[in-house]
């Protein structure tokens, strides 16, 4: 088996008459960290949500771990157990404490026993530095803690790939570092990751590959130092100029 974990070919997605993705090709190898950057409305979140079929593609093909998700007969629930997803707004189950958030899907979906599920959960809480928050309710945690618990919840399913949808966008600035630290550690441990982010420094330091998306296309793709450090395309250049040096540009038009 070749070590391609995620393979997207000719992906198209429309909402009504609005074409959000106009033909995307993407390949993520095992152990790779791929960051997707781009202006809002460029389709990067939609692309990520298509990879675990939270959005139904209009056209094209998505294969994750050898399972073709775009096949109408695919067991999507089974496929999703191998794809961890981290949301911008955390989405911890608000009626369950941290431990139950981490064990509920292990027990109900993977059919693990109570004890095994708890051991896995505690191990993953330790990985994200939340061992002391086992019994806390989500509302009692800071945004950064909630997001780390959400990462631990996804990790508890033993996924082959982790999807991150702007995981730090909803956080107070001083909490961003905690979450990025956990993500960097995951990358160092060899986790396959697909990350939609506005954190250019993270992309530059951690990503093996960076995709710049605009208007439903992948405009530029390559190693981080190339796409962020020396962008070739004019749209990439103007986007990065605005993001990296926001005070020296007038408003667009």
């Amino acid at each position: 088996m070749s070590d391609v974990v995620v393979e997207v070919t000719g992906l198209k997605k429309s909402f009504g008459t609005l074409d959000v993705l106009k033909g995307i090709d993407l390949q993520v190898n095992r152990g790779d960290v791929v960051c997707i950057i781009g202006p809002s409305g460029s389709g990067k979140s939609t692309l990520l949500r298509c990879v675990n079929l939270l959005e139904e593609p209009t056209g094209g093909k998505i294969v994750v771990d050898g399972a073709e998700l775009t096949d109408p007969d695919v067991d999507i629930d089974k496929a999703r157990t191998k794809i961890g997803m981290v949301f911008q707004s955390f989405n911890l189950f608000s009626h369950l404490n941290v431990l139950a958030n981490l064990t509920v899907a292990q027990r109900k979906v993977l059919k693990r026993g109570e004890q095994e599920a708890q051991e896995v959960a505690l191990r993953n809480l330790e990985r994200v530095g939340l061992s002391d928050k086992v019994n806390a309710m989500p509302a009692q945690l800071s945004g950064g803690q909630q997001q780390r618990a959400a990462i631990a919840r996804a990790l508890s399913m033993d996924p082959d790939v982790m999807l991150f949808d702007e995981p730090t966008s909803a956080l107070d600035p001083e909490l961003v570092g905690d979450v990025l630290g956990v993500m960097r550690q995951l990358a160092d441990e060899g986790m396959t990751m697909l990350v939609v982010t506005h954190e250019m420094q993270f992309a530059r330091e951690v990503a093996d590959r960076v995709l710049f998306m605009d208007g439903g296309y992948v405009v530029e793709e390559g190693p981080a130092e190339q796409v962020i450090g020396a962008p070739q395309h004019e749209r990439t250049q103007s986007f990065l100029a605005r993001v990296l040096d926001p005070t020296h540009h007038g408003p667009r038009d």
Partner: peptide
């Protein structure tokens, strides 16, 4: 987002309804 989180963990629609949606 609660339903999306449940579905992305591999819960079926019915399972997510019973385990996550109805208690909330």
């Amino acid at each position: 987002g609660q339903i999306e989180a449940a579905r992305s963990l591999g819960m079926s629609s019915a399972r997510a309804t019973v385990t996550i949606v109805i208690p909330q």
